[in-house]
Simulated scan of single mutants.
Amino acid sequence: MAYSDIVLKQLIALVPRYEFDALAKVHHAGQKFRSYNRWSQFLVLLIGQMSGRKSLRDITDNLKAQGQRLYHLGMKKTCKATLARVNAEQPATLYQALFTRLLSRCQLVAPKHKFSFQGKLYLLDATVINLCLSVFPWAEFRQKKGAIKLHMGLDADGFIPAFMDMTSGKVHEINWAKTLKLPKGSFVCFDRGFTDYAWYNDLTINSIFFVTRLKSNADVEYLLKRAGRKSPGITNDQSIRLKGVKEPLRLVAYTDAETGVEYRFVTNAHHLKAKEIAAIYKERWQIELFFKWIKQNLKIKTFLGTSSNAALTQVWVALCVYLLVAYLNFKAKLGSSMQQILRVLQLNLFTKRNLIELFKPTVAQRTVSPQILLWENL
C-alpha cells in the first residue's frame, strides 16, 4: 500500500506554508514571536473547528494526545494562555486575507450557476448571533442584550461565501451592502430587508442588476405591461416606477401553484424572462441553508474569546474551513453533501489514509498519489 500522510496534512496542502507566512508577516502586531507562530494558531483553530471542540482547554488538551503528528504539521506546542492571548491581540485580518486566497482558488473549480446570463450572481443576507452583553460589551444590540450580525454574500457558483463582515447587532444590513464593490454586469439578489431606493439607483448606474421582493407599502406607479405570452405561474410582468428611483423598473408577479401565494419581485433586469427572475429569487434560499449549515456544523455560535478580534478570528477561520471542504468537493467531484464530507474528515483528521480514497474506497491504487493530482496547478 502506498504511503499517505495524515488526512489533515493532505487537506491543508491548499494553504502553502510560504504563502501563509508571507501573509502572517504583513498582518502582525507588536513584537515578534519568541516561541510561537501564526501557523500554529491557524492549525489549532482549524482543528478545533473540524473536530467540534467547545473551549480553548478542550482544544489544547486534545492536541496533547497527537504527539509527533503535530510536529510533522509544523506546529508549535500550544497552551491555553498563549492561544487566548494570540487570538485577542493578533489581527484577524490575516485570516480575512487567507480567506480571499482560498476563495479565488475555489472559484476556479466551482460549478457555474444554472441561469442564462454569464455574469456572477450574489445572494445577500445577514444573520444575528445572540451573545451575553456583560461578557461581550462591544456587541451592543438591545438595552440588555448583546449580539453580533454576520453580513454575508454567497457566490451562486458553487454557493461559496464571497463577502463577509461582522458587526454589532445594531448595524443594519443595508449599510454593509452599500460598501460592497460588485463587478459590472453581475446580479445581486436580496430580501426586503435591503430595501433602499438610493441603493437601487447606484446599482443601476453601475450596471449591476438586482432582484428583490417589493414591499407591500411601496409607492408604485404602474406603467406599460410587457407584451408576449406569460410562463406558467407568472401573473404579471410590467414596467413600474418607484418614488425616488430615477429609472423605470420591472415588476414580476409569480403565484406558487402549491400554496397559491403570490410573490411580487422588482428588478432592473429588463432583458431576462419573467420566469428566470422568479427562479433567481428562489435561489436566495441557498444563503438561508448556508447559515443553517455553518451554525450546525462549525463553531460560530459560541466563541473561544471575548474580544471582537478573537470572535472575528474564529469566524474567518470557520469560513476558511468551509472553503477547504468546498474545494475538496469541487476538485475531487465527490458527489457527497458538505455535511457528509465534514463528518468523514472529523473522524479521520489524524489517520494516515489517502484523502480521495477516504471518500472513494473502491478506487484502485495509482502510481501517482491522488492528493498530488488534487492540489495540482495551484
Rank of each mutant, 00 (worst) to 15 (best):
F187A: 06
F187E: 08
V188Y: 04
V188A: 10
V188F: 06
V188M: 00
V188G: 06
V188D: 01
V188W: 08
C189W: 13
C189Q: 08
C189M: 07
F190Y: 10
F190K: 04
D191G: 00
D191L: 01
R192Q: 03
R192S: 02
G193M: 00
F194V: 03
T195S: 12
D196G: 06
D196S: 08
D196H: 02
A198M: 07
A198H: 09
A198G: 01
Y200A: 02
Y200M: 15
N201Y: 08
N201T: 11
D202K: 11
L203H: 12
T204F: 08
N206D: 14
N206V: 05
N206G: 04
I208E: 05
I208V: 11
I208A: 02
I208K: 03
F209P: 07
F209Q: 11
F209D: 05
F209N: 15
F210M: 10
V211N: 12
T212S: 05
T212I: 03
T212C: 10
R213Q: 07
R213D: 07
R213K: 10
L214F: 08
L214C: 01
K215P: 07
K215V: 04
K215A: 11
K215Q: 15
N217F: 05
N217V: 08
N217W: 03
A218L: 00
A218I: 01
A218S: 11
A218Q: 10
D219A: 14
D219C: 15
D219H: 15
E221K: 08
E221A: 04
E221D: 02
E221Y: 00
Y222L: 12
L223W: 12
L223N: 09
L224F: 07
L224T: 15
L224V: 09
L224P: 02
K225E: 13
K225D: 15
R226H: 13
R226K: 11
R226S: 11
R226D: 11
A227Y: 13
A227H: 12
A227T: 12
G228Q: 12
G228C: 02
R229K: 13
R229P: 07
R229W: 06
K230G: 00
K230I: 06
K230H: 14
S231M: 04
S231H: 15
G233D: 04
G233T: 07
G233F: 02
G233H: 03
I234M: 10
I234L: 12
T235R: 06
N236I: 06
N236Y: 02
D237K: 07
S239A: 11
S239Y: 15
S239R: 09
I240W: 06
R241C: 09
L242R: 03
L242K: 04
K243E: 11
G244C: 04
G244Q: 06
E247N: 01
P248T: 10
P248V: 01
L249C: 14
R250A: 09
R250N: 13
L251A: 04
L251P: 09
L251W: 08
V252H: 05
V252Y: 09
A253Y: 00
A253D: 07
A253F: 15
Y254P: 01
Y254E: 10
T255L: 12
T255I: 01
T255R: 15
T255W: 09
A257F: 15
E258G: 04
T259D: 09
T259M: 01
T259V: 10
T259G: 03
T259L: 03
T259W: 01
G260P: 05
V261S: 08
V261I: 14
E262Y: 02
E262V: 11
